[in-house]
Design a protein around this nucleic acid. Structure first.
Length: 420
DNA sequence: GCTATTATAGGGCGTTCC
DNA sequence: CCGCGGAACGCCCTATAA
């Protein structure tokens, strides 16, 4: 049976989520900013028309954007995650096998479906009606081509938001028109190198010799070329792979120089990473902490460093992980610098009960650790308040900026939208 | 004066083991 | 006992994506 994939992608997802609850903003340019209100990460069509680039630092575009009547929002992940879950649950009702690929995208396996384009249109209309979110649908015999079909569905409104590339002639026509950097897996650097070889379009890349290109680039490039020719190399993964790495990384709302606030921030990040680790039902043995000053401050020297600690036994206890993280920080903190960002990384994961300690090693895990962590997690999930380790401090002047945060309309009872 | 976060794959290279 | 060569692994870096 011939394989067939669909890629369903939400249009301007974060902006669309904000718009659901602000119909008064129809027609206005809207952007959503990254953490710390740093960069533009989602733009409405009006904001794109104003020429606001993706990833633009907010402080650079702010004045002009607001003069043009634009409205900015801070990232509201509680809202986006909830809307995303609703969209995905609609997809799972309409398609037999779905892979949630990111917060705003999903692949579906449509192999054996009689009228895939009609199903695509049905999915689009249903998601629109049930969630208010507009999606584009691309259908093709490989994931990379489905991505490309989705690009076409968004790029050309005449498609009605659904493009089916099952027909090889249609596929060829599209490939010739799409610049090579729009191909999934081809970023800035690879596109530059490809153009150096005279490859400017997706069609030209599809015609390159896969084996030769593997030698010049990598196995990823080889697969991309095969996929562009309709030969599926990337399977649908319905079940997410267990994570192999957990990172909690954040820029500070203000600059941090002193040991104490830096230690508190790193403690909070380690505590958050530990929570994520417990969600995954994993234990970890390696903790790495990284700090850096701003790479953009030309008048200060740049400093960036990281240190790693190995725990005697894999753990998921916040107290042990925070302690290990602070131990790392001690080795890399230098006085007299202005830090901009810190990160805590957990790696070397072990499923419960799988770790075999050395025969003569005697290491006790903390008593009642399990019960304590469960209580902490339960309280913090209840929405009634938050408990945390004192190591995080209570002043928290480094907390991230979110000046334009919208209410948690769908996840906090006090923030429910009111209709008068 | 303000420039995001999180995750993965793969390559290169040095070390260790056999 | 020594050296060679390949496998396996650790570590760091690059590239990519959303």
């Amino acid at each position: 049976m011939n394989l067939l994939f669909a890629l369903v992608d939400c249009n301007n997802f974060y902006v669309s989520c904000e718009r659901l609850f602000r119909p008064d903003l129809a027609g206005r340019p809207i952007v959503v900013l990254s953490n710390n209100d740093g960069c533009v990460v989602s733009r409405s069509a009006e904001a794109k028309a104003l020429g606001v680039p993706m990833g633009a630092p907010w402080f650079r575009v702010k004045a002009q954007f607001e003069r043009a009547g634009g409205v900015a929002f801070s990232s509201n992940y509680a809202l986006y995650a909830d809307i995303s879950a609703r969209v995905m649950s609609v997809l799972e009702q309409l398609a037999p096998r779905v892979e949630v690929y990111s917060i705003d995208e999903a692949f579906a396996d449509l192999s054996g479906i009689q009228a895939p384009a009609a199903l695509g249109a049905h999915v689009r209309a249903t998601v629109q009606r049930w969630t208010g979110i507009t999606v584009g649908v691309g259908v093709a015999p490989s994931k990379t081509l489905a991505k490309l079909a989705n690009y076409a569905a968004k790029r050309w409104p005449a498609t009605g938001g659904v493009v089916d590339l099952t027909c090889p002639q249609r596929r060829q026509r599209l490939l010739q028109r799409v610049p090579v950097d729009e191909v999934w897996g081809i970023g800035l650097r690879l596109a530059r190198r490809l153009r150096g070889l005279g490859i400017h379009t997706a069609g030209q890349l599809a015609q390159a010799n896969a084996k030769v290109m593997r030698r010049h680039f990598s196995v990823v490039m080889e697969r991309t070329i095969c996929e562009l020719n309709g030969e599926s190399c990337l399977a649908l993964h319905q079940l997410p792979e267990p994570k192999r790495q957990i990172i909690s990384s954040r820029s500070f709302g203000g600059r941090v120089s002193e040991w104490q606030p830096l230690r508190e921030a790193v403690s909070q990040y380690a505590g958050r990473a530990a929570e994520k680790l417990r969600e995954q039902k994993q234990y970890c043995r390696l903790v790495r902490v990284a700090v850096r000053t701003s790479p953009f401050a030309m008048n200060e020297p740049f400093y960036g460093n990281s240190a790693m600690a190995e725990l005697p036994l894999p753990t998921d206890d916040s107290r042990e992980l925070v302690q290990a993280a602070c131990h790392c920080l001690l080795h890399i903190w230098r006085p007299g610098l202005v830090y901009q960002k810190a990160a805590v990384m957990l790696t070397d994961f072990w499923p419960p009960g799988s770790f075999q300690p050395g025969l003569f090693e005697v290491h006790e895990s903390k008593p009642r650790s399990r019960a304590l962590m469960q209580v902490m997690d339960r309280i913090n999930r209840s929405g009634k308040g938050r408990v945390f380790l004192a190591a995080e401090g209570t002043r928290q002047g480094w907390q991230m900026k979110r000046a334009f945060l919208s209410p948690a309309y769908t996840t906090r009872i006090g923030d429910l939208p009111r209709v008068y």
